[in-house]
């Protein structure tokens, strides 16, 4: 554990709390892509299967359980509790174009032909693109509530902080995970456009609006 990874994880936790807070206070999940949230459940469940057979640390265990539970809770909020505020007609990204290629990549690039290893790789690849339906929705509507942009910024910060974490681990442990690093770079890259608008508009007190 190093400070980059720790603050990355804290940022990830924060993003989830921000999202739940947004849904509760506005009593609405408007502007949130259900598809992206479903993908996150798939990411967490396939990656954290090792909860069943390996122990890393209490920290690791608690975080994994929290990520699975909170992501399922968000689906409940969107599909049951605040269902009328969820508008599937603007959430139109074709998820099969993400899941299919990620499954193929996981079969090619993994650390061993065991079901759990392939699913681990799959979850890493899928996480890197899981935000796309959300970003696509943002692009379509052209604007977002400020709180939603804070959610996305915290989520983007999480993977951005994992990059210095990997650099740190490379020098301190001689360790590098090519699958995680490649997918992580892609994932962070997807946020660059968003970050640009976030820093130049939202943090200057303006509304998040994309140029027409």
């Amino acid at each position: 554990m190093n400070i980059f990874r720790f603050f990355g994880d804290i940022s990830h936790l924060a993003s989830i709390f921000i999202l739940i807070h947004k849904i509760h206070t506005s009593r609405s999940c408007r502007g949130i892509s259900f598809k992206t949230q479903v993908l996150y459940v798939a990411v967490f469940v396939t990656r954290y299967l090792d909860l069943l057979y390996s122990w890393v640390s209490l920290y690791n265990f608690v975080m994994k359980v929290f990520f699975i539970a909170s992501s399922c809770y968000i689906l409940y909020l969107m599909k049951v509790r605040f269902r009328p505020t969820n508008d599937p007609s603007i959430d139109t990204f074709r998820v099969e174009y993400l899941v299919g290629p990620c499954a193929v990549l996981a079969l090619i690039f993994n650390y061993g032909y065991a079901v759990t290893e392939v699913l681990w790789s799959f979850s890493i690849f899928l996480e890197s693109v899981a935000i796309l339906p959300q970003l696509f929705m943002l692009q379509r509507t052209g604007e977002a509530e400020t709180i939603t942009t804070h959610y996305l910024a915290a989520l983007g910060a999480y993977r951005t902080l994992y990059i210095p974490n990997w650099i740190y681990r490379y020098f301190s442990e001689g360790y590098v995970d090519p699958i995680a690093v490649t997918a992580g770079l892609v994932q962070t890259g997807l946020y660059l456009d968003f970050f640009y608008v976030y820093f130049t508009k939202v943090l200057q007190g303006q509304k998040f609006e994309l140029p027409a």
Binding site: V56, M63, W120
Partner: peptide
């Protein structure tokens, strides 16, 4: 687990 995989990360 491979020594070179981030299985200890979240």
């Amino acid at each position: 687990d491979s020594d070179f995989s981030a299985h200890d990360e979240l």
